[in-house]
Design a protein around this nucleic acid. Sequence first.
DNA 1: AAACCGGGGAT
DNA 2: ATCCCAGGTTT
Length: 347
Amino acid sequence: MTLASQLLTWYYENARDLPWRQNNDAYKVWVSEIMLQQTRVEAVKNYYTRWMERFPTLDTLARSSEQEVLTYWQGLGYYSRARNLLLGVREVCARYDGKVPDNAAEILRLPGVGEYTAGAIASIAYNRPVPAVDGNVLRIFSRLFCIEDDITKQGTKRKIHGLIQNCMPKEQPGNFNQALMDLGSAICIPGHPRCSLCPLTKYCEAYAREVQDVLPVRPPRKQPLHVTLASGIVKNGESLLVRQRPSTGLLAKMWEFPSIELEKNSAPSAMLPALIKADLAQEIVLGQKLFHCIHTFSHRKWDITFFDCRWLDGGALPPFARWLPISEITSLPWAGPHLKAAAALFK
DNA sequence: AAACCGGGGAT
DNA sequence: ATCCCAGGTTT
């Protein structure tokens, strides 16, 4: 009995029933793999189903607008994933006649596709025997071979990639890779793995040495930078003043209420009207606080307060801003904290 | 190699 | 309060 056959036997009995496992269509595998990057299965399920109802084929997606695509990604995070996926399917239409290339090397060249995703698509959709090294796989193999190197280092990933090539079956490479995901999700979990349920304990060096709880090794994360912001809710009739964020950087191209980062100890009372006047050519008077929230990103923590603003007068808006009817709030892709405020204030 | 890029569920 | 998730791109 090999490690692979042991794992596959376990998988036949324990594979999760997931929406993107109904077939191995390359477009569907692609979408699911991009959505799943740094994102939990439970969070992806509903997004994936809604996505496939709206963009059922690669061609449908390729002909859709970036703004609509971002709206369907709203809330999933890492929005460059959606923009790159759109660029990717358009490239497949232009260069590959609308058919996803059937090998990892060509898939790897598509925007938003790295080593892991190329391996996942090639193995699951096209039965190519290539590894797909994600966080689950790094964790499982660091334990199987008792690897104490920092798993975030490139060299460690290369080492594990090589180990997988040695135990990867020629048949069912897609099931093998997906079995590792399910094992990592249900059994070989971070912290205290459920070794009593694991089909691979007889191959596991960490289990033999009883060090599974301290593997894998990775450096501690840096704490997010704290930023204070003020934002203005400007209402003109039944419309709200909104603007689109720049095309690069945090929450690129997402929409928000006009806002500014505050210097330490500065009052928003003067800053916010001045900003709205300078950037958006609107005259407002600052009112009371309407909503406050703290929103933590991976590398930044926003402390943002939304102020009621009385609209007095104004000229034409710049192209990146508009008056948005309250009834159309959900038709735009929003910066997360601003959607929280909109939902609380205009429900 | 290190920094950037979101959001939330589990512990 | 901390961890970390079916990672990729940019600097």
